[in-house]
Design a binder for these strands. Structure first.
Length: 207
DNA sequence: CCCATTGGGATTTTAT
DNA sequence: AATAAAATCCCAATGG
């Protein structure tokens, strides 16, 4: 019933192995290996439903259709926390505006923010490290804190202006939805997920 | 068995 | 007003 899932499991196992290996032997930054290793994972979504989501990004350039194939991920430091710029800003960047009109704000703060934008924001915030944080030596992989995961969720619900409080369970459902469109994948490890390369690059571009 | 996590169908909200 | 996409709600399944 799960032919591709098994494939993914295998990949995950390999990934975990590599993670351990490099952690022990180098303890350094070897993320590029990961990117290569992880690449085949998007087999599940790459064949068909790729490409339509490209321009849905608020901050992506319209003409820039296929920047991929870049051997190195434009990202070498997973625990990047030196950012001072707010992600929500990218919605109103002057140069990136294309067919889309990001100038629409529902509320005074932020306005239209997607869940993974928000997550990235939180991940970049050192003060939130006790809730979610990047897992070292793995590109785009992040893990929720078992005890504080609901705080992130609550914050998300608050940001959206939800009436009822958001919970981790519900938020994680949204995260699972992202797997369908290939924005974020679940990693076979407790409370950990991974941004796809494309998503990561896009997010970093607008931070 | 209990509890925390994960999966997914159904429904609602939001944006175009 | 209609449609599609994104997010939310809820409950079942899984695993430690």
């Amino acid at each position: 019933m799960n032919s591709f899932q098994e494939t993914q499991s295998d990949l995950e196992v390999i990934l975990e192995f590599l993670e351990e290996y490099y952690r022990q032997h180098t303890g350094g930054n070897v993320d590029k290996m990961y990117c290569t290793a992880v690449e085949p994972v998007d087999e599940r979504s790459a064949p068909v439903d790729k490409g339509y989501c490209e321009q849905c990004w608020t901050c992506s350039e319209p003409t820039n259709v296929k920047p991929a194939l870049q051997p190195l991920l434009a990202h070498d430091a997973p625990p990047a926390l030196n950012t001072t710029t707010t992600l929500s800003e990218c919605g109103s960047l002057p140069n990136f505006v294309s067919t889309r009109q990001p100038t629409k704000h529902t509320a005074g703060s932020g306005g239209k923010v997607r869940l993974f934008h928000f997550l990235f924001e939180v991940l970049e915030d050192p003060n939130m490290a006790h809730c979610v944080s990047w897992v070292p030596a793995a590109a785009g992989v992040f893990r929720f804190s078992s005890t504080n995961k609901d705080k992130v969720a609550a914050l998300w619900g608050q940001r959206k202006g939800n009436k009822r409080p958001m919970t981790y369970q519900k938020m994680s459902r949204a995260l699972r939805n992202y797997a369908r469109s290939g924005e974020i994948f679940k990693v076979k490890k407790k409370l950990t997920y991974q941004f796809s390369r494309e998503t990561l690059m896009l997010l970093q571009k607008c931070q």
